[in-house]
Amino acid sequence: MSRTFADAKVHTPANLEEALDFLANHANEGWKPLAGGTDALVPIYRDGAEPTTPWLNLQKLRPELRFVRRTSNGFEIGALATISDLMANRDLCETYPIVRQCCQHFASPAIRHRATVAGNLANASPASDIAPVLLALEAEIESANHAGRRFVTLDAFWTGYKATVLAPDELIVSVRIPHRDLAANASMFRKVAPRASNSIALLNCAAIGTRDSAGTWTNVRIALGCMGPVPMRARKVESAVEDHRFDDTCREEAKALLQSTLRPITDYRATAEYRMLAATNLVSAFLDRTAGNWHS
């Protein structure tokens, strides 16, 4: 007979309002939202310890929060939209091909059917695959508590390894992608991992920008995962290449800037040296592109 963890505490609110009221009344009890749950059971069953975390099961909020839609300002991804839901939205995937590229390398089809975009961001792992894409697209998090809603840009959302700005009484409601990159003619998502899918990234990189016929880059945004405690933008490199061609001087400058700003660690997946070399190569591979209209 397998373990059952009979004493585990789970509460299932009927809708968003009820969930927020519950959190307001139990803010100091450590309730943790359970969305797709794909990263919730494994540590419990693997470690075998009686789970102490009380779970707030969001399953019944699906009718309210499982959607992906275009608005006048951009795309809105409901907090319970799954990775599969992103892939199924042709409008989003054709507007931003890096979304589909990333999702195709995100875990496995079975996990993509459960795992939510917001859960992946709230989990605050530096190895999140969707995080660099949403960072490069300058996404914002819409969160709510019983008193109201607020917006925070994604790059201000993580405060450290596995930590976010979310208060104990707060839930993500949606993730917003602003219409900022409709003119971009180049984008890239790359994940370095032992297998093409169902692997945790050694590092990953998402980039988007516009390159004119003379090779001059504008509106470049580059984001990297596993290169520090949180997924991060390479802002200094972005500034250095803005209105420039990616020539040898620019390449050396970008390399130096990456080396002075990224903070990869050595762990059982890869060494810091390997990560730095691969990240530098990925950023160069994107900026080296010689033709426009290239999304891959």
Partner: peptide
């Protein structure tokens, strides 16, 4: 939808 049954708790 095909899902991995080892990752899904009864409550869901």
């Amino acid at each position: 939808e095909a899902v991995s049954a080892c990752l899904i708790p009864a409550v869901q």
